[in-house]
C-alpha cells in the first residue's frame, strides 16, 4: 500500500482535536475521495500525508516511510514524490505560467536541457500549452487551477493530493478538473482528493473516506 494511517489523532496546539483515532489504508494506484463537512478534518488529514503537520498520536506511513520520525532536512525530498493541488492554487504571481510549472523541476535540480519538454508536456495535458507565457493573474479560476495541476504532476509523482481543488469553480469546470485526476489515476498515479461535492464521488465511482468531526465513518464503494 501507499498510505497507511494507524490510530492517528491530531490535536492542534490550541487544543482542538481535529482527527480522532483514524485508521485506513490506500493502495498503490487507487483513487480515493475524502469527504465531510467543513471543519471535519479533511485538510488536516492531507497535511499529515504531506508532512505539513505531524500526527499527535498514531502512525502515518507514506510510500513505505514512517512520517513520525522524519528528519527535517529530508522533508523536501519526500515532498518531491507528491504532487499537491490546493483550493487557492498557490501559484507564484510574479512568475509566468511556464515558470510556475517549471518550479518543482528547478528546485529539484532538474537538468535545464529537458526542462522545456517536461513543462510543455504537463501544460499540454491540462490544455494550457498556448498560455505558457501568460501571468497567472490573467487566467480564469479554472485555468489557474489547471496550472496548479500541471505543476503538481510535472515531477511525475507517484501520489497526487488535492484539497478541495474545485471549491471555487462552477459545475462544468469542476467536472473537467476531476476528469483530469481520473485520467492521471488511470495512468497509474495514486490520487487522494478532498471534496465536499458528493456529485463527483457518485459520478466517478471511487472509494470515499467520509469524515465527521474528526472521525472516520463507513467506507463505501462508489456511494456515500
Amino acid at each position: 500500500m501507499l498510505i497507511e494511517f494507524s490510530n492517528v489523532s491530531k490535536r492542534y496546539p490550541e487544543g482542538h482535536e481535529a482527527l480522532r483515532d483514524i485508521s485506513f489504508v490506500i493502495d498503490k494506484g487507487e483513487m480515493v475521495f475524502l469527504s465531510g463537512h467543513s471543519g471535519a478534518g479533511k485538510s488536516t488529514l492531507l497535511r499529515l500525508v504531506t508532512l505539513i503537520e505531524h500526527a499527535t498520536r498514531g502512525q502515518v506511513i507514506v510510500n513505505g516511510q514512517n512520517l513520525g520520525r522524519f528528519k527535517r532536512r529530508n522533508i523536501p525530498y519526500f515532498r518531491r514524490q507528491i504532487g499537491m493541488v490546493f483550493q487557492d492554487h498557490k501559484l507564484l504571481h510574479n512568475l509566468s505560467v511556464f515558470d510556475n510549472v517549471a518550479l518543482p523541476l528547478i528546485v529539484s535540480g532538474f537538468h535545464p536541457r529537458d526542462l522545456r519538454r517536461r513543462v510543455h508536456a504537463a501544460l499540454d495535458k491540462v490544455g494550457l500549452l498556448n498560455r505558457d507565457r501568460a501571468k497567472p493573474i490573467t487566467l480564469s479560476g479554472g485555468e489557474q487551477q489547471r496550472v496548479g495541476i500541471a505543476r503538481a504532476v510535472v515531477n511525475r509523482p507517484s501520489l497526487l493530493v488535492a484539497d478541495e481543488p474545485t471549491g471555487n469553480l462552477d459545475a462544468g469546470l469542476s467536472d473537467e478538473i476531476f476528469d483530469l485526476f481520473h485520467d492521471f489515476n488511470y495512468h497509474g498515479v495514486t490520487v487522494l482528493v478532498a471534496t465536499h461535492d458528493l456529485r463527483h464521488i457518485k459520478r466517478l465511482g471511487k472509494r470515499n473516506l467520509n469524515l465527521s468531526e474528526g472521525r472516520l465513518n463507513i467506507q463505501a464503494e462508489g456511494t456515500d
Binding site: 532536512r73 523536501p76 515532498r79 518531491r80 499537491m84 498557490k90 518550479l103 528546485v107
Partner: peptide
C-alpha cells in the same frame, strides 16, 4: 512568506 511556503511545499530545500 507566501513564496517561501509554496517553494517548500513543492520540495524546495532550505538551501535553495
Amino acid at each position: 512568506q507566501e513564496e517561501i511556503r509554496i517553494i517548500k511545499l513543492i520540495g524546495g530545500t532550505d538551501a535553495f
